[in-house]
Simulated scan of single mutants.
Amino acid sequence: MKISRLGTRAKSAIIGGLILAQVTVVPTMAFAQQMPKPPEPAQMATQLGLDQQQTTDFVKIMDQHQAEVKAVLSEHGIDPQKAPPTREQMQAVQPQLKQLQEKTKAQLATVLTPEQMQSLASQQPPRS
């Protein structure tokens, strides 16, 4: 099935999965030995074959997203570099992380083509 034939829900699911995968990596950085570090946004842009303007926009969006996630975690006393967050801490931040996920998803959808979004989603490591 061609990506252009996918409905809005399918496209949203692809984008949502992509952002959720990115959001869940930051809180689990303490498990870096168990989980490979995600590629940097600039490296991801290169792998996607983005043009210069797309790369600039993509890196800006992803860097902003990562900074916002770290700020939310910090506001709740979570520092994944020092200790893994507790279940209660993660439950407390989930609503804010979900809002950031939706915001980033909407921003990426304005920069990437549906094909690029699908390619990006396929590059994400599988979630366990």
Score class of each variant (00 low, 15 high):
H76R: 01
T8P: 14
A42L: 10
F31V: 02
Q118A: 14
R9E: 11
S119Q: 15
V59L: 03
V69E: 09
Q99G: 04
I61S: 02
G16L: 07
S128I: 05
I15D: 06
A71E: 11
F31I: 00
V59T: 14
D79S: 00
T104K: 09
Q99W: 01
S119I: 12
L120R: 06
M35F: 15
Q22W: 06
V93E: 02
P95S: 07
D51N: 15
T110D: 12
A106W: 05
H65P: 09
S119R: 09
K82Q: 15
E75G: 04
V59N: 06
Q81V: 02
I15G: 02
Q123W: 14
L73E: 05
A32V: 15
E40G: 09
K82G: 00
H65Q: 15
Q124H: 06
E40D: 10
Q54K: 04
S74V: 01
G16Q: 07
V26I: 14
Q99T: 09
I78D: 12
K2C: 02
S74L: 04
A109H: 14
L120F: 12
P126M: 13
E75A: 00
L97P: 03
V26Q: 11
V23K: 05
S12F: 09
Q94H: 02
Q107W: 08
D79H: 05
S119W: 06
I61L: 09
Q33H: 00
Q53Y: 01
P85L: 06
D51Y: 03
S74I: 00
A83N: 02
H76Q: 08
L20C: 12
Q107V: 08
S4C: 04
K60S: 15
Q99A: 14
T86K: 03
M29W: 12
A45E: 00
P27K: 07
I61M: 13
P125E: 05
A30W: 08
R9V: 05
I19M: 04
K105D: 07
K11C: 06
T110A: 09
L48M: 12
